[in-house]
């Protein structure tokens, strides 16, 4: 161990950030968790009594909660599948040098620079249920009206969340593409060349040389997209407004705070969200830390 004189100044320099993160991340998480274990069902100064996991149990008995969880599951499956697939295809298309590559990449990725609120406003219109408007109108105009006949998109109580995943895929597929492109380019050209010399077709080079090396990138993309999906909030608010058809836990939590005004219940929803994200992210962070230690 080095002498404290050497490292102490470094620690002191980081200390302000450690305190801020300590309070705002870990302190508030603790406070939220504590709140979720009380019966503080009204805003205001009066503290609640400790009731254990009562709020958690009660939450799972609410149909509105289980519906919102189901909505999130459907959304996540469709969004994750769609964004990964589209992102992968886009990366394949752009992997080999081609004229105009930068332009295409810029176009595929630009939705990342736009807020979910703006995206939601356009897509709410694109997914309008009346037959003349939005995508329904566009399909009709090109003679494919039968495909979307009477389509109500996200308003459909059964399949609405499938439609809701569309704008999210539109917005984030470019991110997946960027991750995969970086992954492709991390596979050394020598290795690909070796495959070609052995007589592999370009397709076989991808299949047997490039893809097996993409596992880390695949994992990164799933963790990043997965945790974004679990947190989805702005987009749903912008598209669905006050409608509960497309409600997900994050939106339900927001309404719990501002409409129902029940802090303890809101906090227990928030704890669920944190738990879901933590299960996904913590192994990733640990893996990342180990990797860095090994390589340094």
């Amino acid at each position: 161990m080095r002498k404290a004189r050497d490292w102490l100044p470094g620690l002191l320099l980081v200390l302000p950030s450690i305190i801020l993160i300590g309070i705002f991340v870990y302190g508030l998480i603790g406070w939220n968790f504590q709140l979720s274990l009380t019966d503080k069902h009204l805003p205001g100064p009066k503290p609640g009594e400790f009731v254990g996991l009562d709020n958690y149990v009660a939450l799972w008995e609410l149909k509105r909660w289980t519906d919102s969880v189901w909505n999130l599951v459907v959304f996540t499956v469709v969004f994750l599948g769609g964004a990964m697939l589209l992102g992968f295809v886009l990366a394949l298309l752009l992997d080999k040098p081609i004229r105009g590559e930068m332009t295409f990449r810029t176009v595929y990725l630009f939705p990342m620079a736009v807020s979910f609120i703006a995206t939601g406003i356009v897509w709410r219109w694109l997914m309008a249920s009346d037959s003349a408007a939005g995508l329904n109108g566009l399909f009709g105009a090109v003679g494919l009206g039968a495909l979307v006949d009477g389509q109500t998109w996200w308003r459909d109580p059964e399949t609405g969340m499938v439609a809701m995943a569309l704008p999210a895929i539109w917005q984030l597929a470019g991110y997946v593409m960027a991750l995969f492109l970086a992954g492709f380019r991390g596979v050394s050209e020598d290795l690909r060349e070796a495959g070609r010399v052995d007589g592999a077709t370009e397709w076989q080079v991808y299949r047997h040389v490039v893809l097996p090396q993409l596992r880390p990138v695949l994992m990164v993309a799933i963790v990043i997209m997965g945790h974004m999906s679990l947190k989805v909030f702005d987009l749903i608010v912008a598209v669905a407004g006050n409608s509960t058809v497309a409600e997900v836990p994050a939106v339900y939590m927001w309404k719990m705070v501002f409409d129902v005004r029940d802090p303890a219940f809101g906090a227990s929803i928030a704890s669920h969200l944190l738990l879901a994200v933590a299960v996904l992210v913590i192994p990733y962070l640990v893996w990342n830390m180990r990797n860095e230690r090994d390589s340094s």
């Binding site: 939220n32 994050a250 705070v257 928030a270």
Partner: peptide, 26 residues
């Protein structure tokens, strides 16, 4: 680096992934 700076760094990173709902009410 100081002893434990890797751990501090990882604890920082967790703060970037959390759903901010988890801190919003407090």
């Amino acid at each position: 680096r100081f002893p434990g700076s890797d751990v501090v760094f990882t604890l920082f990173l967790f703060g970037m992934f959390i759903p901010y709902q988890a801190v919003m009410i407090p």
